[in-house]
């Protein structure tokens, strides 16, 4: 007679009453392949708890909360895209962050989950949910250009780029769609695509 899956699991976890545990142990003892199960899973369970964290702080945790608040606010106060003007994060949402020497501060830009997750319909043009600059000296302002049907991002406080560097736009996730972007001499950035982005610098190709 063999232990049921229910009994076996509870026996492995040590939560059976004593008499039932003894009965299961006797059944397991008759199965050569299962005799070491309890010791094996005691070790595996301990190793899993020790090596796989149950809790992880999300990257840019304050931005996680602020973006969520923005999205909740948008849920309660939907307005047409064309009517959205410039929008800036309050300063209390910024954190001090070490600026890479000689380069623009890395900026995480959260874009709306167009077509990726959730039930939001694909909007015309791009839509930026919120922005976050880890460096307090850098500000990010977004406006919607109705003529171009695109969201424009203005970066202020970014160290002027050396001529041998260009801005790079990298999707935060390998699975994210590709992003095309350009920046003019005034620092106006036009992006197309949907993703969470990392904005940094790359050497200009010669």
């Amino acid at each position: 007679m063999k232990a049921s899956e229910d009994q076996w699991n509870r026996w492995i976890d040590g939560v059976l009453p004593a008499d039932e545990a003894a009965a299961v142990a006797a059944m397991v003892a008759e199965d050569p392949e299962s005799q070491d199960d309890q010791a094996f899973f005691a070790r595996l369970s301990g190793d899993m708890k020790a090596t796989i964290p149950a809790e992880r702080t999300p990257p840019f945790a304050d931005f996680f909360n602020s973006q969520l608040q923005k999205r909740l606010w948008d849920l309660e106060h939907p307005e047409p895209l064309e009517k959205r003007g410039g929008w800036k994060l309050p300063s209390w949402l910024r954190l001090s962050w070490a600026v890479p020497l000689g380069a623009a501060a890395a900026i995480v830009i959260g874009l709306s989950q167009i077509g990726l997750i959730g039930d939001r319909a694909v909007a015309q043009g791009s839509q930026i949910v919120s922005t976050y600059a880890p460096d307090a000296s850098v500000s990010v302002e977004t406006t919607f250009n109705a003529d171009a049907n695109a969201m424009v991002i203005r970066l202020t406080g970014v160290t002027p780029l050396p001529k041998d560097l260009i801005l790079s736009f990298e999707p935060a996730s390998k699975e994210s769609s590709s992003v095309a972007g350009e920046v003019d001499e005034d620092g106006l950035v036009t992006l197309e695509g949907t993703s969470s982005l990392e904005v940094g610098t790359l050497p200009r190709a010669n």
């Binding site: 702080t57 997750i117 935060a172």
Partner: peptide, 26 residues
């Protein structure tokens, strides 16, 4: 957020995807 993000990350093994999914969950 730490427990939710951690649980999702352990399933999908991608920080960016876990971030997005945690946002969606909340």
């Amino acid at each position: 957020r730490g427990r939710v993000y951690g649980m999702i990350y352990n399933m999908v093994k991608s920080e960016a995807d876990a971030w997005d999914l945690a946002q969606e969950a909340f």
